[in-house]
């Protein structure tokens, strides 16, 4: 094993103390740590002080609000998300996505906030230190080259959280704490630059995730090498509202094919109000395939990852149809 460099672990008990701790130079939020700790031991992440979120009660709550929406604290574990009655009842696609993360133990430890903020991954960087020692420093490590895409001016590492497309399809909003609290739709949270992939200023923290009242029907699909443990090589989530005999306002998101989720507007246009035949779903999948441009920095081959997107989207759309039929609509 590769030991961690010296650092301090801080465990604030309240919100103010938390924000004060995070404002210190070198402070890094620590959720479950299942990704951060190995990242630190491989010198992929750095931090002088890890600020644990686990001791702040507000971050660990799952609340049904008066307006019918649900507020998920960032430090709620993925296992809790996957089995919470509120989530299983109204947002089953999110429960599916949470259950698709890692393994049983990783989900018991990893948090929803950690999954949304998860460091991007790249086959040319997420390697032990020795592997990278003789390699030129890449964008994400503060250098000026991308080994996965030499022509790229920015880091193309892969956004690898499974809950991201599901939350995007559901229309979730993120609550950010900092100098001033703010809220934004999750799809606006990702910059597209793999090295600075989330829009959090120094001292800011993802505190909660708001799931809308009356959510659309949604479905999530993941593609990876094995049935467990592995990060996604591509994932997708779709949602739509069944109204007046047709699917309306579809949302189609593909992720784990680049530094940010990809919204497939062309597919949404094709699907909106149309007759969702098998062929149409395939066609929507094909539009999604064309809309993504992965680089060869995942574990599986890049051409395969792109082709897989077609099936993921078509299948997820098929899941919506099945859900509708099950409800007798």
């Amino acid at each position: 094993m590769m030991p961690l460099r010296p650092l301090a672990v801080v465990t604030p008990r309240g919100e103010e103390e938390l924000l004060r701790s995070l404002a210190v130079e070198g402070a890094v939020p620590l959720g479950g740590g299942s990704d951060l700790i190995p990242g630190l031991s491989w010198e992929l992440a750095s931090g002088d002080a890890l600020v644990s979120l686990a001791g702040v009660p507000a971050l660990r709550r799952t609340d049904a609000l008066a307006d019918g929406s649900v507020c998920l604290g960032a430090a709620v574990t993925l296992a809790e998300v996957a089995r919470h009655p509120l989530i299983l009842g109204a947002y089953p696609a999110l429960a599916d996505a949470a259950r698709a993360v890692g393994s049983w133990e990783l989900r018991a430890q990893g948090t929803i906030g950690g999954n949304v903020c998860l460091a991007t991954r790249c086959r040319f960087r997420n390697q032990p230190p020795l592997w990278r020692d003789a390699l030129q420093t890449c964008y994400q490590s503060g250098g000026d080259v991308c080994h996965a895409a030499p022509a790229s001016r920015t880091c193309v590492a892969i956004l690898s959280g499974d809950t991201v497309p599901a939350l995007a399809a559901l229309g979730a909003q993120l609550e950010i704490w900092g100098h001033a609290a703010r809220r934004l739709p999750i799809e606006d949270f990702y910059s597209g630059d793999g090295a600075h992939h989330i829009s959090l200023a120094k001292g800011e923290l993802l505190a909660a995730i708001h799931l809308p009242a009356d959510p659309p029907t949604a479905a999530f699909r993941k593609w990876r090498a094995r049935e467990s443990i592995d990060f996604p090589e591509a994932n997708a989530a779709v949602s739509a509202v069944w109204r007046e005999g047709a699917w309306r306002a579809p949302r189609v998101f593909v992720s784990a094919v680049g530094p940010a989720p990809v919204r497939v507007v062309a597919a949404e246009a094709l699907l909106d109000g149309a007759d969702w035949s098998e062929d149409l779903l395939r066609a929507a999948g094909e539009l999604a395939r064309k809309a993504v441009h992965p680089y060869d920095n995942g574990q599986l081959n890049v051409a395969g990852r792109q082709i897989a997107v077609r099936g993921l989207v078509a299948r997820a759309l098929g899941d919506l149809q099945n859900a509708r039929r099950e409800r007798g609509l």
Binding site: M2, L30, G33, I37, P38, S103, L106
Partner: peptide, 30 residues
């Protein structure tokens, strides 16, 4: 046991307050 030190093998599983946890990716202080 320490099989991978990265949370990828499960060999280091123990219980923390009754919950199975991966000891290799858990800081003791937490």
């Amino acid at each position: 046991k320490d099989g991978c030190a990265a949370g990828s093998c499960g060999s280091c599983t123990l219980w923390v307050d009754g919950v199975p946890r991966l000891a290799c990716v858990t800081l003791a202080k937490t």
